[in-house]
Design a protein around this nucleic acid. Sequence first.
DNA 1: TTGTATGCGTTATCAC
DNA 2: GTGATAACGCATACAA
Lengths: 351, 351
Amino acid sequence: MKKTITIKEIAKKSNVSVSTVSRVLNNHPSVSPAKRAKVQAIIEKEGFQPSMLARGMVSNKTKTIAVVVSDVANPYFTSLVSEIELASSEEQYSLLLFNTMTAGRQKKADSSFIERDTFHTILEKKVDGVIILGGEIDRDTPQPEYLAALEQLNEQVPVLIVGQKQEHSSCSFLERDLQKGIFLSVQHLLALGNRRIGFIGGEKGVKITTQRVEAFKEALSLYSRFDPSLIYLSDFYTEDGYQSMTAMIQEQETLPDALLAINDSVAIGAFRALADHGLNCPKDIAIASCDSFPNGDYQIPRITTINQHNQFLGKLAVKRLLKLINEEPLETIELHSPDLIIRESCGIERK
Amino acid sequence: MKKTITIKEIAKKSNVSVSTVSRVLNNHPSVSPAKRAKVQAIIEKEGFQPSMLARGMVSNKTKTIAVVVSDVANPYFTSLVSEIELASSEEQYSLLLFNTMTAGRQKKADSSFIERDTFHTILEKKVDGVIILGGEIDRDTPQPEYLAALEQLNEQVPVLIVGQKQEHSSCSFLERDLQKGIFLSVQHLLALGNRRIGFIGGEKGVKITTQRVEAFKEALSLYSRFDPSLIYLSDFYTEDGYQSMTAMIQEQETLPDALLAINDSVAIGAFRALADHGLNCPKDIAIASCDSFPNGDYQIPRITTINQHNQFLGKLAVKRLLKLINEEPLETIELHSPDLIIRESCGIERK
DNA sequence: TTGTATGCGTTATCAC
DNA sequence: GTGATAACGCATACAA
């Protein structure tokens, strides 16, 4: 490995002091055009890159954002991370990614502990801000130790959480409008003539599940009848949709007219389970999803779903975090409104 | 934001010098048990975290790895990134993620430039090592400027590339066995009675596409006949599979017996295109994929595909990069051998 | 065993 | 406009 060149050597080669080089680097006005040109030339020639470490030492800024996610491979998180990276890099920030795996296939045992440990590392790395996507904070009642650690973290560095608000937390939250999507899809299902409607997927004890089921109950009670025995929770992945659907097929004497799936992955799992029992969506049962994932429009059937505008959410998250970092005032949130995407999985009017 | 506590303040509160605190921090033997205990206590009490910035300044190590990926949202890259993060954190390394978007839906114009710019940032951040997944390096002939920048990067910090070897590059490569999978699937398709076999998906001018098509040609020529007019390249995503399949349906007088898709996403797109034309896989055409993605076993039909052991690949990448970082010798690679996963999309014997 | 002093690469404050 | 120099937080060689 070639030794990296430093500002001192640039100074020497340019016959100026380090301060002058530093000024050139930072576009300070007070440096003569002649010297500036000379120094610039040497910098180019040597391919000099100022060390962000050293800069960070003096400025207390690292131009780095930490992103904590419970499972990058979950499509919802993947798209968010992707958008966050894009938005960050546009603002010259780098992303430090922490994949805690407290969700998903390789779920770890003590999620709270792992995420606290992550906070530890984040603090060491001296990032300028933190974005948290899911994990322990998404639970209805996160562990007290976790919340304490989170508070401590937020004392040292601004923390933005993309998720539903947690009581007594001093962190900033970027919430999603969970209810509107539910109402839109329930109305859609009802309008198509479905009366008996169930719910599949989502993990018990997780905020977005709890809140969506609650909204589902409300919406359904308004027009039809809410039947708690038609709620089959499990988790957020395809295999969970498969399991829930299978269980429902086995346990219910007659299948409901329609289902709401917590997301597209779960819907896909349900399609598969139906097919394995000689059943078909939307012929035998209509299924709508609450959260659009990529490629939902290539499934068979194409999934009728809710666009939660996750792309926009990622950008907004970065925008808000940067304001926190720069101590600018946070204007009230422009919450994006979920939209219903009608495709094929709810079929046409039933009966 | 609370000011972060430093080693100096710990020293003062403990009535010892900073060196003693430093020794405690680094588990140096030469510190009396009494002082060690005292200092430890204060550290715990104050929740002191040594700054990795300062440590990096003196040690020239940041315990950070940069990962450059052309599109995190591509399932192949997502799984790799996930595994790499896991393996890294196990070794106390953090991940700096760069999502160059030189592939995928939001593909940028000048990929070579963007990635070179990324290298610039990586150098500034003083990471200990770099892992590159895809992008310009994956092209059959990467731009000379890119290769030059890559060489320069590799002079300053160890670079490991997960992808097919590039001539004249001094970087380390972790290759995938592309041929074996192709042979396995072609043989499978032939054994089922298919003779006329096409290929869909993959981008022209990209190494893995070129090499796979080449292997496909070889394998097919061995047993049957290779027909170049049945090669429909495009890109690696679902929509590309849809396009290729649609084009094939429209252009070919009679559909081939079977297809090889570059990956599961492309296969899914093909299924959709077939359905939109009243056709069905595997009834009307058999389709095998060259690269298994998550949830391929929940599609309709379940996808017969190749397990390239990407999970293993991610771990191996980190393992090898760490050896480069620690200047340990690199034993010859234990190349994992791809396996055929027979599911439903090739159906049963034809004719 | 312990403390002092120096340096890591950069910016900022101060003289000149 | 320019150049010393201190400071950032930590590790370490050296002294004691």
